[in-house]
Design a protein around this nucleic acid. Structure first.
Lengths: 162, 162
DNA sequence: TCAAGATTGATGCAGGTGCATCAAGTGCGC
DNA sequence: GCGCACTTGATGCACCTGCATCAATCTTGA
């Protein structure tokens, strides 16, 4: 058996697991109560809306969102079913396709950001000073480093972040 | 629409979500590769093994683990199917029952701790000084407070934590 | 004591996820 | 130009989860 973690590390691990799941639960619950779909839909719509012409290859979306391929494929199915996105053929690579966000998709994304940002403020922002939020981000980044980097959200005045 | 979160808060939120899911994924993956069942089984076995006579009411387990009732019910089903626990009738309350950990259950819990603790060290302990781990715990606790408190793991030399 | 309500635990159903695998298309090396 | 490995995306299957609901039992209050 390998070296054991310190009690401090173990304690941080436990809190990371518990707090994240609680906070995520709260946020998802608020969104659901407001009649919105799950957060994953928001993430996908945001990625699409940010893309140059509102379209991405599924494989790009997959890399942005860090979810497995089959998961992306099915998420797109659902978005398309709801008229939030549509599949377009990709002429340069006939295996592939483009997924394009629709007007309805863009609108839903914006409306969701209202509820989503309020939830972030309620469950995170209001609990932490900005300085502490920065400290927390820094510590978390140290844990994430080994699994690849994290996209920094480019923030302009009212641009939704991810 | 309500007040918007600062970019610092939003950034912390994003990292909390991403880092947790990455790290959890890594740990679960390591456990799976070592041939062990999911972490939830470990948590349940640990709670049971810590209980006074190795048995708990499902409703207690549910409260300890912070998972929904139906989830507890089915987790117990699986543990029982695998011979890691057994259901005993509860004489004082005929609606209820006791779930008792078996010898096999205790053993699996101990064996899992070997792999589990190694994973914690690998993905958390080795990335953070003890002092930073304490800081991280503190910041996370501030977020968790609104959702109820967290059990502090009582640590003695080689006692598994949760 | 008895009815109304709360608590305990199980379960049918719809849907989501992970895994393995497949088919189609691309592109590289020879 | 051909074959072989790789990439892209979809899907069948098993299992897991959330939701709603149920039956059984306990508790409370009049």
């Amino acid at each position: 058996m390998k070296r054991k973690p310190s009690t401090e590390a173990t304690s941080a691990w436990i809190r990371l697991m518990r707090v994240q799941s609680r906070v995520l639960d709260c946020v998802e619950q608020d969104l659901k109560k407001a009649g919105f779909p799950p957060l994953a839909w928001y993430d996908a719509l945001l990625e699409l809306s940010r893309a140059p012409s509102g379209e991405l290859r599924p494989v790009e979306l997959e890399r942005q969102m860090l979810i497995p391929q089959y998961s992306t494929s099915r998420l797109i199915d659902r978005l398309v079913d709801e008229g939030l996105a549509l599949r377009r053929e990709c002429k340069i690579d006939k295996r592939g396709q483009f997924v394009e966000i629709t007007e309805a998709g863009r609108e839903l994304q914006k409306r969701m950001w209202g509820a989503y940002s309020a939830a972030i403020e309620k469950y995170v922002g209001s609990k932490l000073s900005d300085a502490d939020a920065v400290k927390l981000s820094g510590l978390l980044d140290r844990l994430g480093c080994s699994c690849g980097e994290m996209k920094l959200p480019v923030t302009s005045e009212s641009t939704p972040l991810r």
